[in-house]
Design a protein around this nucleic acid. Sequence first.
DNA 1: CTGAAAGCGCTAACAC
DNA 2: GTGTTAGCGCTTTCAG
Lengths: 340, 340
Amino acid sequence: MRPKQISIRDVAALAGTSVGSASRVINGAPNVTPEIRAKVERAIAALQYRPSHAAQSLRSRNSKTIGCMFSDVTNPLYARAFRALERRFFAAGYMLLLANGLNDPGREISILNTFQLRNMDGVIIAPGNERHAGVLEATRQLTMPIVIYDRDMEVEADQVQYDHSAGIKAAVEHLMALGHTRIALVLWQAESRPVRCRIEGYKASFQAAGLAVPDLLVQVDSPTSSVHDEITQMLSRPDGPTAIITQGTQTLGSTLRAISLSGKRVPEDISVIGIGDTDFAEHYSPPLTVLRTPVESVAECASSMLLRRIQQKGPDPAHVNTFPYTLLERGSCGPVPRTK
Amino acid sequence: MRPKQISIRDVAALAGTSVGSASRVINGAPNVTPEIRAKVERAIAALQYRPSHAAQSLRSRNSKTIGCMFSDVTNPLYARAFRALERRFFAAGYMLLLANGLNDPGREISILNTFQLRNMDGVIIAPGNERHAGVLEATRQLTMPIVIYDRDMEVEADQVQYDHSAGIKAAVEHLMALGHTRIALVLWQAESRPVRCRIEGYKASFQAAGLAVPDLLVQVDSPTSSVHDEITQMLSRPDGPTAIITQGTQTLGSTLRAISLSGKRVPEDISVIGIGDTDFAEHYSPPLTVLRTPVESVAECASSMLLRRIQQKGPDPAHVNTFPYTLLERGSCGPVPRTK
DNA sequence: CTGAAAGCGCTAACAC
DNA sequence: GTGTTAGCGCTTTCAG
């Protein structure tokens, strides 16, 4: 059925050279006579020869493939990160395997093991469960270069991360400058670096201002769940917030919905800052002030670090690169309402 | 440096059997004595043996990998499709290579060729430029099973698609039942199946109602571009729309923004229906009535078709599966305003 | 600079 | 049922 896959032997035969020379031409080795090169190239074209990736991979021990594990590409910020990574790596001759950890440790371990088995040249990972012993173990098992994406894991690997703490601080300070002190922070409950750092920054902001940390920290179980009810309830409290900082797309959406249904307006009655710049925030009415995360820059950095480490195998200490948020002011923040 | 990768030979040696038997155990072949199986398994465990994917792939001629090409995972609908596909295939022992075509024909061709070169067991593709001769040619070049995702391409392949035409019809009819006739349709200009079908359904709806097709079809160049201005201008026309159907996330966002800035309210002054159910639509204020696309079902179908074709190589005519939209009524549609 | 030859690790015939 | 063996297609010494 298949017309007998043409191999490098056929090329060599037709070019009248050895397979060795053919291989050199294919791999662009420097030491080849122009004549031989031309002959081989002609044969390749005539035969429509395409090297077998599996054979190259077996022999040369590199797969020209990068493994990516994010919790969920459905998260627009991960989707953007992946797109940037993919573009960069594809240009460099690599393809990306993408797997969603789905916050399931068992699944994450399985994915990590598969990456090892398939001999990825490098991996970029953001496990949902960074503290899980099994996940940690599976990660340590990995023998290829690793970039940890915004997680705290005690693993010998390069890291890229966002400065969530400073970002939240900037947001809180911005709101305080507008007179707010009853500032709520709505997060998705998870034992992960972003959440931990945000809480830390939140608390630090109030302490720095000499204020008590308000009882307005909301951690929901899942981004879809009870956010709406919790916010609604919080808004009805006499000491409810005059400003809310919220993460995510779904969580943010629920928050806004709850505000809207409580009969309050943004920003007149309540100010809102979103964490992470998304279409949603940009196009909401009013457009939302957000903490913008430099996703593309981070991806760029991650790919550079990984690529460098793949190329030069020399032992080089692990690097950690941290990127700042920027506060993007739009129309969702205003001064504290007088009548409250 | 690497402690001499252990191969199936080592396993066989330690188990005191032949490599053949070891291979059989590894691949779960039926004809193996329980004793031998046990010995081999013990050896595998003792050696921490992991089979080389590259070698298996080279020898057995299948990569246990599926190639996915979507225009852009940043599109939430593609992200959801990918997540569903990945979950399904991973469970079946496959990993997914994901590449973004980015609506660049050259890039798409390059990706397609790479899929062929890397011997994917199957591919699922949605080229941005389905009519492009080179893309078509590269697709025809593919020798593995193919599933075309919501595109019209004359290629021997299974297909999954959405019934955009009927979907738009349902939306228009819903609006007409509320008294609207000045119904606008905002699309992203592209020579692709979804857009073509939507226009078709739009026109057909009016013809079926015995009405002239209104001059309210807007096709923007890119989802980010001039939407806002075009909508603003359209809204200011004396014969402007009383209802708008809009696709996408960004396009929809811009549309709503333009409405809002024109001082009009949804749904009192103008009704809105979004194409595709997204977080944005769900959480907007008011929540938007949308045409819901059964993304997960479609992905499920696509993976089933592909898996089946990968397993049984018997020649089997190509199938086309079409899935309906459902109109999800929320709060963005109302009767035609009296004073207009 | 080029060719010959030895495998990479595995599976699939094929004998036993 | 099990062992032996011949490659899959390629890169990479190593001579020449």
